[in-house]
Design a protein around this nucleic acid. Sequence first.
DNA 1: CACTTACGTAAGCAAACACTTACACTTGGC
DNA 2: GCCAAGTGTAAGTGTTTGCTTACGTAAGTG
Lengths: 109, 109
Amino acid sequence: MDAALKALAEPRRREILRLVWSRELPATDIADHFAEVTRSAISQHLSVLKEAALVSERRDGTRRLYRANADTMNELRTFLDDYWTSGLERLRDVAEADEARKRQKKGRH
Amino acid sequence: MDAALKALAEPRRREILRLVWSRELPATDIADHFAEVTRSAISQHLSVLKEAALVSERRDGTRRLYRANADTMNELRTFLDDYWTSGLERLRDVAEADEARKRQKKGRH
DNA sequence: CACTTACGTAAGCAAACACTTACACTTGGC
DNA sequence: GCCAAGTGTAAGTGTTTGCTTACGTAAGTG
């Protein structure tokens, strides 16, 4: 999940992800979409996205077809939703652990 | 919004953000929470979060009190929600723009 | 006014990142 | 078997990032 967030932090990768959102696309077609950078750069971005499970790859002859992985994106979505909402509930525990840490630190020093 | 996503990509910053989720906290208290890194490192993280408008800062004497900025986080949330859902609808436009680009590229070359 | 508390900030460093160019590898058609 | 198409990968480069130590500074305290 960490990897997914990190992968999404890069604008180019978000754009790639959008391209393969609902249809499979071969690497070359994806690269063609970006005039500014090399095919190689896109290939590396695709690796990152694949590593983060944000896209899946399917081989067809010499081509590799990429498509966004809806499962991972839904997981990420619920992770963030939890993040938004859980802050409040878990706060008491965090505060308590914090106090303990503080006392320990002071005691040591 | 880009800055916010990038800021969230860092685990430490997410943890900081959670600490100030629903209560103000002075920088020192935040730093005390992290035994592994320096106060300076946390200060720099706070700068990034502030730059991304994910936290707001209020001064009180020598102290600076930080608190998560709910507005920005809601904006980010809707941005992502749009991102999840809009892919489908905007896809046709992207595809069309893409075809145009492709034709142009071939024409030039 | 000296001293302490609570901070940011500058400088430097190693690791990570987004690229590039050049090359290697598969797959399918002739 | 040879060649072209489609693609990953290795190596190198400049920039950014997350950190450290050291110093600077503003606000309260005696």
